[in-house]
């Protein structure tokens, strides 16, 4: 019941929208503001409950990366760990590689 499925908005008609769930298209209700085609959304029990934010997408990843840097500075985590994460950062912050 708390299950949410990610999908991409195809069409918006007032409070109804068509959402693509990886090939399966469903009509759903929306309770979010300013919905436009192309938005990624979380759908729960036939309703869009939230838009997924592209800017915030890396939020928690950045948090853990910053923490790793701090721990390395304090000598509490090995540099090798950070190098591994740097790789991930490089890969994931270059959008066209996603």
């Amino acid at each position: 019941m708390c299950w949410g499925v990610y999908g991409k908005v195809l069409e918006v008609h007032g409070e109804r929208a068509y959402v693509d769930f990886g090939g399966v298209v469903e009509e759903v209700v929306s309770v979010v503001d300013e919905l436009v085609p192309g938005d990624y959304v979380v759908v729960h029990a036939g309703m869009i409950i939230s838009k997924l934010s592209e800017e915030e997408f890396l939020g928690s990843f950045k948090y853990i990366y910053e923490m790793a840097k701090k721990l390395v500075e304090n000598g509490e985590l090995s540099k090798r760990e950070l190098e591994k994460m740097d790789e991930v950062v490089k890969r994931w912050t270059t959008k066209d590689r996603w």
């Binding site: 990610y6 999908g7 991409k8 990886g22 997924l52 997408f57 721990l71 985590l77 790789e87 991930v88």
Partner: peptide, 23 residues
């Protein structure tokens, strides 16, 4: 693609998971 990105970064990334576990 946010869906694919979520899968790759938050689910299928073993390296990252082991980093987080170390932390």
């Amino acid at each position: 693609d946010l869906k694919v990105a979520t899968d790759k970064l938050f689910r299928g990334n073993r390296d990252l998971a082991s980093n987080v576990v170390k932390i």
